[in-house]
Design a protein around this nucleic acid. Structure first.
Lengths: 192, 192
DNA sequence: TGTTCACACTAGCGCTTGCTTGGTTATACA
DNA sequence: TGTATAACCAAGCAAGCGCTAGTGTGAACA
């Protein structure tokens, strides 16, 4: 089952939905609120989406697909050096996290609201993304740049990065790239 | 406004509520579900709590208060060495996170559902807890054990630790203490 | 010119929600 | 024995929920 956002109209509606889902949470966002934000009546909403569930799936698919694309591109540009690959991956993660912030916050915190079939489909996308991380971290471990268990290290790094959505202020003095570099510096202080 | 859990009965009800809030999320947990889990009828619930909001506040207060107690005790036992204080704090964090797991998951992910007055009251508790962290991290920075910006370092560490509730399996081979030590090792590999 | 189709509307159905009301029961204390 | 109190129940209200049915409308295409 593919939930792709074919029409530009639907893509725009999905963007608006993501914003409301972040503001209010999925459960507290009613179809009437969604419709009003979109400038239509609540009944008309079901011309574009089969049900409320499908809107959620569309939001999350959009965000995850973008994350995957950005990470792939970043790794292609980064070359072979494990150090710069790790840094590139951290930067890419925060880049997508804050350009598609709404979609990612929904993906991170409303995942459990997905029904089983949508979850199965989207799990593949997410797994593909995490596989990139594991690869880069393995390289850094082998090169002796960082230390510890590969599984734990990747969880800790992703946790630290994902948690930034709870406190980071994009309007502040620090750029997302600064943040990424600081994290890499923290776990890998001796850049040779 | 104090929301303390005076009676043992209410304390038990709060514990049950925490479990349901984790399982279903606050919004999807109905007062009828709560009552059934407690073995009473939905109307009777409002004898113990003014409204659904107050149950949420009670859950979060319980968890945060415990975290604060445990951290204080851990720091008293840890002595003066910045290294062991940082380690003790990380261990204490994961200890409370997994002994009061339900309450903490609710505190972390349903915080926004609190109404303003409850939030104001509970913010103080949370701030007191985070102040302990900032103190310990400052000491470790001054001692040269870890590197980076004090604000960012504390956010990254807390993020990595809090995110463990999303993937850590208490039934597995690793103890929470192992986890804490691994994180400290990752950011502070050269124990002198 | 007639037909189709995307998109929107109005109206409301069936159900669930948090919470209230008025009354009952068991236990403790005077 | 009489009274207070904590804990509970049965019944239901008003509001809000996701979603459906049936209809109207303007642009695109034959």
């Amino acid at each position: 089952m593919n939930v792709i956002n074919a029409s530009p109209r639907r893509k725009e509606l999905t963007r608006l939905a993501a914003q409301l889902f972040v503001q209010e949470g999925f459960d507290r966002t009613t179809v009437r609120m969604l419709a009003q934000e979109m400038g239509i009546k609540s009944g008309s909403l079901f011309h574009h989406f089969r049900d409320k569930q499908e809107i959620l799936a569309a939001v999350i698919e959009e965000g995850t697909q973008n994350a995957l694309n950005i990470a792939h591109r970043a790794l292609e540009l980064a070359g072979d050096d494990p150090d710069s690959r790790l840094r590139a991956m951290a930067r890419a993660h925060l880049e997508t996290l804050f350009t598609d912030r709404n979609a990612h916050v929904v993906a991170l915190f409303e995942w459990r609201r997905l029904d089983p079939s949508a979850r199965a489909h989207l799990s593949h996308l997410r797994d593909a993304y995490e596989a990139l991380w594991v690869e880069v971290i393995d390289e850094a471990l082998e090169a002796g740049l960082i230390h510890g268990d590969r599984f734990l290290v990747s969880r800790f790094i992703l946790g630290a990065l994902n948690w930034t959505v709870r406190w980071y202020d994009p309007g502040g003095s620090r750029s997302p790239d600064d943040l990424a570099d600081e994290l890499v510096f923290m776990i890998m202080p001796k850049t040779p």
